[in-house]
């Protein structure tokens, strides 16, 4: 995973709350067995509307999405994160995220930063007032800056550290492998086993 510290990119305002992962990527696109190439599927239903925010010329090339509350609720599909990433997004800011989506983002290097409702409104207003102006996302300081407007965003310490260091979870866990083996040696015999087939 690439290290993530600070970057500047175009922001797009998604003035909608309760954006579930079925909207981010409809189920029909989940049949693929690859992990990339999902950019065409992002917000597939909404993108049929020429006025949808991501179709507007001023937001082409956006890499920061500022969304309403409860972004990424519903299905666990990590494809939602892959689609956002493949489309070019590196960060999503929202007042509240679906838990599984937020976890998936952290594993894939997509920053999910929590902002207050008021700051989401301020960011929307600022982006719409000056589309094309870059937003700087500073993960070290946990601040998003657009012109004169600076808003703090929240992300848990551990995810922030992993993003900054670009660390792989499985590698980290396997450093604890002896403890896993020790735990398994104590596992009670009544606990489920799928094999042998009964």
């Amino acid at each position: 995973m690439d290290r993530f510290t600070r970057f500047t990119g175009l922001a797009a305002p998604l003035r909608r709350s309760n954006v579930d992962t079925d909207q981010i990527i409809p189920a029909n696109f989940l049949k693929r067995v690859t992990k990339t190439g999902f950019e065409d599927a992002l917000f597939y239903g909404w993108r049929q509307d020429p006025d949808f925010v991501l179709n507007r010329p001023e937001y082409q090339g956006a890499s920061v999405l500022v969304a309403g509350s409860d972004f990424g609720t519903g299905s666990s599909r990590e494809h939602a994160v892959w689609a956002l990433r493949d489309f070019g997004f590196r960060a999503v800011l929202s007042p509240r995220f679906g838990d599984i989506f937020r976890g998936n983002s952290g594993k894939q290097g997509l920053l999910a930063g929590q902002v207050s409702e008021e700051d989401a409104e301020r960011l929307w207003a600022a982006i719409e007032a000056q589309p094309g102006v870059g937003v700087t996302i500073d993960l070290v300081e946990r601040v998003a800056t657009l012109g004169d407007l600076s808003v703090p965003f929240d992300i848990d310490d551990y995810t922030r550290w992993r993003l900054i260091e670009g660390l792989d979870d499985i590698g980290l866990t396997l450093r604890d492998e002896p403890r896993i083996t020790e735990f398994e040696s104590r596992r009670e015999s009544w606990r489920p086993k799928t094999l042998p087939v009964k």
């Binding site: 992990k35 666990s76 599909r77 990590e78 494809h79 994160v81 599984i100 976890g103 998936n104 594993k107 894939q108 979870d169 499985i170 866990t173």
Partner: peptide, 8 residues
Amino acid sequence: IGTSEVEH
């Protein structure tokens, strides 16, 4: 869980 966690 997500697919990264499935792998994990």
